[in-house]
Design a protein around this nucleic acid. Structure first.
Lengths: 152, 152
DNA sequence: TTCAGAGTAGTCAAACTGATCAACGGCGAC
DNA sequence: GTCGCCGTTGATCAGTTTGACTACTCTGAA
């Protein structure tokens, strides 16, 4: 994956609202030749600089209106097993290994607080996971975005 | 924003790899009439069930290879000011208000550990923010996804 | 039973796509 | 300096897709 240059960013910026605008429209809106936009789009999608389109779907639209962060402490010798097990849980949206006290930080969603309990239980039962601590999100203060970074 | 039904999910699933496939191709791949796919896509994009396209861009592709989570404790009487200030920082990707001890959980990215220091400094200096604690992510164990939720 | 809403299947003209081309400019290697 | 490489441009082409429209069918709810 190579880094995106300012032209790439401009293209992505113009695609922000509607990723299906015709390339021609895009090109003339940006003052570029159609071929340029076309080849850059191909390169960007091929280079893996973009997440799959489904990452745009809001969990709330899938009935998962409750979000939370689960910290998990784990038996380091079973790290890979734990990760494999977490990957099988659809409600696990994302997982990071932070420096510091907790071993894994897991982003989850659920249909309700009750369902959240079920999900965190499911995480707790993953092999290698010793202890978890779930913190429900009361509010999404700033929704995920990268818009600001595109404007460099 | 209304909830997506199984057909909507199938459409989104088929769009996962390439959001620019022609609607006709999509329709015959799913065994639906073109008009159906077309109207549903319109409805979905209009209903706000999707994030802007730029949320697909990997921060790493924008030179932000370092990710972290910042917990911020704040003076509750300046909550809105703090949020407004955070919104102005492009490296702040997202922000949640969790139940529990910390007041805000902020997802940030940076170009380097050194740059991460700068960003967390910037957050600390936001009006209303009393104390912060930054935890750098050593590894993205499971990249963000919603794929599993689409298969219900 | 009747009705509204959603899906199907078909049409149309206009517009788009992907592929291709020659030409041009910048840039690093030699 | 100049050579070749690479990306951009502006152009062409046939084939396809789009958006808008129609009429018909199906289904669940009143």
């Amino acid at each position: 994956m190579q880094e995106l240059d300012p032209t790439d960013k401009r293209i992505l910026g113009a695609l922000d609202e509607d990723p299906r605008v015709p390339i021609m429209v895009l090109a003339q809106r940006l003052g570029l030749a159609r071929g340029t936009v076309q080849s850059r789009l191909e390169r960007m999608t091929a280079s893996g600089a973009l997440r799959p389109n489904s990452s745009r779907v809001l969990p709330a639209a899938l009935g998962r209106g409750v979000a939370a962060s689960v910290s998990a402490e784990l038996d380091q010798s079973h790290l890979n097993e734990a990760i494999a097990a977490l990957r099988e849980i659809p409600e696990v949206l994302e997982c990071h290994a932070p420096a510091g006290d907790t071993d894994l930080l897991i982003r989850v969603v659920a249909t309700s607080p009750d369902d959240l309990y079920r999900v965190s239980e499911e995480i707790r039962l993953c092999p290698g996971i010793v202890r978890t601590s779930t913190s429900m999100f009361l509010r999404e203060v700033i929704p995920y975005r990268t818009t600001g970074l595109l404007k460099d």
